Amino acid sequence: MTREKLLAIVGPTAVGKTALSLQLARVFDGEIISGDSMQVYRGMDIGTAKVSPAERKRIPHHLIDIKDPDENFSVAEFQALAIPLITDIYSRGKLPILVGGTGLYIKSVTRHYQFPEAAQDTAYRKKLAQRMKDEGPETLLHKLKELDPETANRLHVNDKRRIIRALEIIHLTNKTMTEYIKEQKEQIRESPYDLVMIGLSVDRQKLYQRINLRVDQMIHEGLVKEVKKLLDMGYGLEYTSMQGLGYKELIPYLKGEISLEEAVEEIKSRTRKFAKRQLTWFRQMPEIHWFDVTDEKEWNRNLLKITQFVEGKFPILKNINESS
């Protein structure tokens, strides 16, 4: 049976994934599926570095602007949406291109992970929600730290839904979310796709410089106004979406608690740490073919090198009519 072809482009934030995906989509007649956990939210454009509406008209993009900021979104839901999208795009003679920096989202699709999402106990969940309301989310987060410290350390105290979900999984399965993720990592499962995965890497200091410049550009483009608008619409830190980088750091500034300079420096610092975690995650994926794009002057040469590599893997999809 012929496997569906899938091109994935991964790497840390600010490394150049979007630019590469647009170029390869033109060359190989592709459609792009966003593998970013934040770009699903409407009204959160600058801080999530969404591709411009003009580019979205030229190249079809999927899984962008599909949720309001007060709606929940999980890796299991992402997987459930992305897998049939890949089939649909490929069935129309196009190349599906999965692009993103959220490692678990990418791997959930390329390896068809199985998540414990089916197990639910509505009564238990309501009980936890009431306790959280009565005693505060700190109480349940402390309980989760005793049972699953790794998951608890990843969650913000206001991420109430995920705290409750993590405790519910333990209650129903006697396994922690950390154990589920570890089991998935340990399973040697061949991808169901004819998969080519490109990873972009950059010298660490150069990457940090790019991150700093990107944050400055976001502020220049109106990130503060974007966050203020979301707050005025009633979206606060109680929502997972507002825990995103660039959003939660600006809220204290808008409340008059810190200066803009302090908020911007916090965004840069947390984004640099996030990029380091992304690299750690992706370095554990042996199927990634890495390309160093540190030298921006060599972008065209690197683009040609990557294009030729993909063409060698997917020769029948080369768009011979592409002139640029």
Rank of each mutant, 00 (worst) to 15 (best):
R270Q: 15
P286R: 09
V293R: 00
T240H: 02
L279S: 12
M218P: 01
K268L: 01
K248C: 10
K255G: 07
T271L: 14
P286Y: 09
E266Q: 14
K255V: 01
A275V: 12
V293D: 02
L279W: 05
D292W: 05
F291A: 08
K305P: 01
E266Y: 03
T294K: 05
S259D: 06
R277K: 14
M242K: 02
V227M: 01
L304I: 13
N300P: 00
R277W: 05
V227N: 03
R301A: 14
E257Y: 05
W281P: 00
G236A: 08
L279T: 12
Y235M: 00
T294C: 03
K229G: 10
G222H: 08
Q284M: 08
V264S: 05
S241A: 15
N300R: 12
M285C: 12
E265F: 03
L245A: 06
G244C: 02
F274D: 07
N300S: 09
I267W: 01
Y235A: 00
L260V: 09
S259E: 05
E298M: 13
L260G: 08
R283W: 04
E296I: 14
I288K: 06
T271R: 11
L230R: 13
D295T: 04
D232H: 07
G234N: 07
V293A: 07
V227E: 03
E298A: 14
L279Y: 09
K228M: 13
S269D: 12
V215Q: 10
G246R: 12
Q243F: 01
E238L: 03
T280L: 12
K229F: 02
S241C: 08
E249T: 02
W281F: 15
D216L: 02
E226W: 10
E238Q: 12
F291R: 06
M242H: 02
E262V: 10
Y253R: 03
K255N: 15
F274I: 06
K273H: 10
L279G: 14
R283F: 11
G256C: 07
E287K: 04
L303E: 11
W290P: 09
V264A: 07
A263Y: 04
Q243E: 07
V227W: 06
A275Q: 08
E262W: 00
Y247R: 00
D232M: 09
L304F: 11
L304T: 14
K297M: 07
E257T: 11
R301D: 08
K305L: 13
G244M: 03
